[in-house]
């Protein structure tokens, strides 16, 4: 008996749940032979707003987890992705990617997750500093997450590109609202299932599908978004006028999203410097 051909309904991922877009809109995804692969949610500005609310709520708890625990959770993501390697590869092939490129996408995505899992509890040890002072002060600088990052994932690399955008941002204790590849979005929503299964707290990662042209103005103007990452070309310079409203940081990874490294984490960290008078700490009994 032939199995039923059950089509997957792709929705969006907000606050650990899979709602449909509130707008009720969708757009079709076709492969090279013009066959319909799926209908995707065309996310609206209100979906983005809802995702920001969820991301804001989740961020503090995520940043307050120990770096070691964040590392474990990122590693868990890699485990879960690897266990579904074959299904991700065939999903990518359905979009028209070659067999080789599809399996490379999944492998590189897994490697990237393991890579940033390793960095979670190390970057701050490497990049923080004790600073020289001319007075009797103990002065040190540490990195802290910028908190809430909106991001546009690369267009051409549906899974590896997606993971390269998410991993360094959440490794640093931020939460993220991310717009997946517009033309190749299916694996992004399947990756949301991996996230949901991997002890990543609900709301730390939120994934939307839709149009960058439509959502980017809202990403840049939203006052509760602290940083904006765009890993796709075509960002207009006028965007800076809205970014400045809440001094949002903009990072353009359109050329560099493939390069991995701890500096990717630092792109969305703030450096916080603290002074402690040495005498008073000595007077209090040398507690540290």
């Amino acid at each position: 008996m032939a199995a039923l051909d059950i089509q997957k309904t792709y929705k969006i991922f907000i606050g650990g749940k899979f709602p449909r877009t509130e707008s009720g809109r969708f757009y079709p995804i076709r492969n090279g032979k013009d066959e319909l692969i799926a209908n995707m949610c065309l996310a609206s500005r209100k979906d983005f707003k809802n995702a920001v609310v969820a991301a804001r709520k989740a961020q503090v708890g995520w940043a307050n987890k120990t770096a070691y625990n964040r590392s474990q959770i990122l590693y868990r993501l890699a485990e879960m992705l690897q266990s579904r390697e074959a299904s991700f590869a065939s999903e990518l092939e359905a979009l028209g990617l070659s067999k080789k490129k599809s399996s490379a996408e999944v492998e590189k995505a897994i490697d990237t997750l393991v890579y940033y899992a390793g960095w979670c509890d190390k970057y701050s040890a490497i990049f923080s500093s004790v600073n020289p002072t001319a007075t009797a002060h103990f002065n040190f600088s540490v990195h802290e997450p910028m908190e809430l990052i909106a991001a546009v994932a690369p267009e051409s690399s549906p899974l590896f590109g997606l993971v390269s955008t998410i991993a360094p941002i959440i490794a640093g204790g931020n939460s993220i609202v991310l717009l997946a590849s517009e033309k190749l979005p299916t694996s992004a929503m399947s990756f949301a299932e991996v996230i949901q299964n991997s002890d990543v707290p609900a709301g730390v990662v939120n994934i939307l599908t839709g149009s960058m042209d439509e959502l980017l103005p809202h990403m840049s103007s939203h006052m509760d978004v602290n940083g904006l990452l765009v890993a796709r070309p075509g960002v207009d310079d006028s965007i800076h006028e809205t970014l400045v409203q809440n001094v949002k940081r903009l990072k353009d990874w359109s050329e560099t999203w493939e390069d991995q490294g701890p500096y990717k984490i630092l792109d969305f960290q703030e450096l916080k410097t603290t002074w402690h008078p040495v005498q008073s700490s000595a007077a209090s009994g040398g507690g540290y």
């Binding site: 939203h222 509760d224 809440n246």
Partner: peptide, 9 residues
């Protein structure tokens, strides 16, 4: 303003 707002403000 047309922009979504943030609680700390």
């Amino acid at each position: 303003t047309g922009a979504y707002q943030s609680a700390p403000y």
